[in-house]
């Protein structure tokens, strides 16, 4: 072993120890400067290489090269070890579990959620939204809808009146009349909106609530079309399993008239308190538009037929979210609003 080889071996064993013990990047750098830097050991030894005998030069050169590679590898390992430590330290400094700076999530009112959903479902079935005033005339709310002159719903017990004889609409159906008056068939609209009944507010009654109304008029429209649209709506709103059932009923503005039920969305029809153990939940009324209503707006009932349906949006919201008391919807307690 010549003097150069001796120096290389000594340097290697010293470097290994120093790098393993290095606590920071500066210690690693110090080793690099001492051994590999411009004025370090290895460049110096490289210059001395000429002084050793030619027959030894080959072996010494090989040792020189592997030695240098070895040191670089140790340095790399040391750096990695140090970086990992630093990352750990940094992680300890940032507590990612602390709360973020929130600017408010924003919550849609449950009745709006249901309204928007209904509208989206019916738009997919070719309906668009129409609207009308909330302060209505008796004509649009009752007369044009074939309500008999002395129908109880016209009574000031049940409907809100103003001094000029107008009323707060008790249903969204006047929108049907307004649309039919201004459009020729085919007509395909839904009308969501606020309606008013003179009921003292309690858990299931409001004097002020929302309905969505549907109307489709064309040649050859039948009850099968009505049932199909309502079934599609039930499926989209409450899922594949929900079935609908039509029952005969009576409304002045439709003939035939039906009430429609959804199979109970809670128990699937097996019977539970929500459906009063009947398996069905009454949703609302519908029917084929009465020929008198068509005549009132100037449509020929011999040519056109159509269906209309309506439903209460609060009721759907209460079913969907299992809201037990209607009044929560108008109290606006943020602990309630923020659940939706």
């Amino acid at each position: 072993m010549n003097a150069i080889e001796t120096k290389i071996r000594a340097a290697l064993s010293e470097a290994e120890g120093k790098l393993a013990a290095a606590v920071d990047a500066a210690a690693v750098e110090q080793v690099r400067i001492e051994l590999l830097g411009r004025n370090g050991l290895f460049p110096a030894l490289s210059r001395e290489m000429g002084s050793i005998p030619a027959e030894e030069r080959r072996a010494t050169g090989a040792l020189f090269n592997t030695g240098r590679t070895q040191i670089e590898a140790w340095m790399e390992a040391a750096k990695e070890r140090l970086n990992a430590g630093a990352a750990k330290q940094a992680a300890a400094a940032l507590d990612v579990t602390l709360p973020g700076r929130r600017t408010g999530c924003g919550h849609k009112h449950p009745v709006s959620i249901i309204t928007d959903e209904c509208v989206a479902i019916f738009r997919r079935m070719g309906f668009i939204v129409a609207e009308g005033p909330e302060i209505e005339t008796v004509y649009y709310n009752f007369d044009a809808l074939n309500a008999p002159e002395d129908h109880p719903s016209r009574d000031p017990q049940d409907t809100f009146y103003f001094g000029d004889g107008r009323i707060l609409r008790s249903q969204t159906s006047p929108v049907q009349v307004r649309v039919m008056e201004s459009h020729q068939p085919p007509v395909r609209i839904v009308a969501p909106g606020r309606v008013f009944r003179r009921d003292t507010p309690d858990a299931t009654h409001g004097m002020n609530f929302h309905q969505i109304e549907g109307l489709s008029i064309d040649k050859g429209v039948s009850m099968a079309d009505l049932k199909s649209v309502l079934q599609r709506f039930a499926t989209e709103m409450f899922g594949e399993k929900v079935k609908i059932r039509l029952r005969p009923h009576f409304f002045p503005f439709t003939e035939p008239s039906v009430e429609y039920d959804f199979s109970c969305v809670m128990c699937g029809g097996a019977g539970c308190p929500v459906c009063k153990h009947s398996g069905w939940i009454e949703i609302a009324g519908a029917g084929m538009v009465d020929p008198n209503v068509l005549k009132n707006v100037g449509y020929d009932p011999e040519i056109y037929s159509g269906y209309a349906f309506g439903m209460g949006l609060e009721r759907l919201a209460m079913l969907r979210y299992r809201i037990g008391d209607l009044r929560y919807l108008y109290e606006n307690d943020v602990r309630f609003l923020e659940q939706f």
């Binding site: 609209i189 079309d225 649209v229």
Partner: peptide, 21 residues
């Protein structure tokens, strides 16, 4: 009324969505 069939909904596009209120 239970004998009324449920058919696939066939919708005629009547109005433009721009008319949607």
């Amino acid at each position: 009324l239970d004998k009324i069939p449920v058919l696939p909904v066939s919708a005629t596009v009547v109005d433009s969505i721009r008319d949607d209120a």
